[in-house]
Simulated scan of single mutants.
Amino acid sequence: MDQLPPGNAPRLPYNSLQHGTVVAFGITYFFCTVVLALRYFQAIKLVKRVEVDLVILTLSYGAALVYFVTMLNLMANGWGRHMVELNMTDLIEFSKGLLPNTLTYLIIPAVTKLAMLCVLFKINPSIYYRAGVVAVGISIFAYTLTLTSITGGPCNPMKENTLKCLENVALAQAALNIVSDLAVVVLPLPTVFSLQFSMKQKISVSCILAIGSSVVICSIARLPYVIQLGETTADSTYTEAILGVWSIVEVNLGIFCGCSMRLKPLIVRYLPQLGLFSSRNTSGHNNIKSHGSWGTSKELRTDPRKAQHTYQLHSVQKGSSDPLSSFESPLGASTLRGAGTSTGPIQVHRGGDGLRSDGDSTDTILT
């Protein structure tokens, strides 16, 4: 059968690629909705506060819906179809809808990663660690601002001969996105693995990091299609749609990961039988460096000559059965007193409710 020339192609219903895009968004956004709702339940019912990362993730959640709406608009004008099926009117409308779609995608992953960095900033008081977190955050903000400015300016798809420019922006964003994803995953590793965790705690942290790694995998999976888009423009409307499916999964998975990494209070309260976040150690004194007595003193001080700091334990009572007693402060049961410049080894103490470390904020936030 002869192909119909552009301009005479009839309007067709959604094809399999377009249907797959809708399904991919529906499934991943559903899980985002569930975990975000759980975070708000936890914030209102249990911890009695709304953390800044939750506010930022809510913005990402709303932006993800806007991103999908821009995709639906593009579908109505040829997104996900082969070029031969489209007429000139379709291509013009497609170009109009491409700008908001591209800008939205550029912004959402960056905002989601900034929310994660807000959490990671709290887990280690070391000035070097926090400087690294801030440096990563500034880098993400800088390259996102630069790419959005270029896309909305010289590479605006409504201008003539800007397709190659847009492809270069997509390639640069893909590479920078992979690097920043890896940075967010790797940043907490030295702190997390320096703590005295039980096997169940290590498993729970590994699950969180695995979810974060899956976002990196999605970013990497997009890369070949970005490269393919730059090598051939003969069927860009179809290639961009394949790229868009991975983008949807990446965006929603990032939001899911950002929300789930702070669900410890909810799980401890309603699913204590899992024991994933138990900080008790039944092996006695093995590998534990203790300071002072093993009693219920509310103040534990470390040797100032070793650049350690003073910690105050709040709401820790011997024999307490309240699983949320360790969530009285944003950083957990131990609130840091000092400038947070310690780079020495993490010391572990015993309070009234079990083993606690000077890095207890890490234990409280992530496990």
Results as ranks from 00 to 15, higher is better:
residue 150 I to V: 14
residue 150 I to M: 12
residue 151 T to F: 06
residue 155 C to N: 12
residue 159 K to P: 08
residue 160 E to P: 15
residue 163 L to F: 07
residue 170 A to W: 04
residue 171 L to I: 12
residue 173 Q to C: 15
residue 174 A to K: 04
residue 177 N to F: 05
residue 177 N to Q: 13
residue 179 V to H: 05
residue 180 S to C: 13
residue 182 L to C: 14
residue 184 V to S: 04
residue 189 L to E: 09
residue 190 P to K: 06
residue 194 S to N: 10
residue 195 L to S: 06
residue 195 L to I: 08
residue 201 Q to C: 13
residue 204 S to T: 08
residue 204 S to G: 07
residue 204 S to F: 12
residue 205 V to R: 02
residue 206 S to R: 09
residue 212 G to W: 00
residue 212 G to E: 01
residue 213 S to A: 15
residue 225 Y to T: 12
residue 227 I to A: 10
residue 228 Q to L: 12
residue 229 L to Y: 05
residue 229 L to D: 03
residue 231 E to P: 07
residue 232 T to S: 15
residue 233 T to C: 10
residue 234 A to M: 11
residue 235 D to H: 11
residue 236 S to D: 11
residue 237 T to K: 05
residue 238 Y to N: 13
residue 241 A to D: 04
residue 242 I to M: 13
residue 243 L to N: 09
residue 243 L to V: 05
residue 245 V to W: 03
residue 247 S to F: 00
residue 249 V to C: 03
residue 252 N to P: 02
residue 254 G to Y: 02
residue 255 I to A: 02
residue 255 I to L: 05
residue 257 C to Y: 03
residue 261 M to T: 08
residue 263 L to V: 04
residue 269 R to I: 05
residue 272 P to M: 12
residue 274 L to A: 13
residue 276 L to S: 07
residue 277 F to D: 10
residue 278 S to N: 12
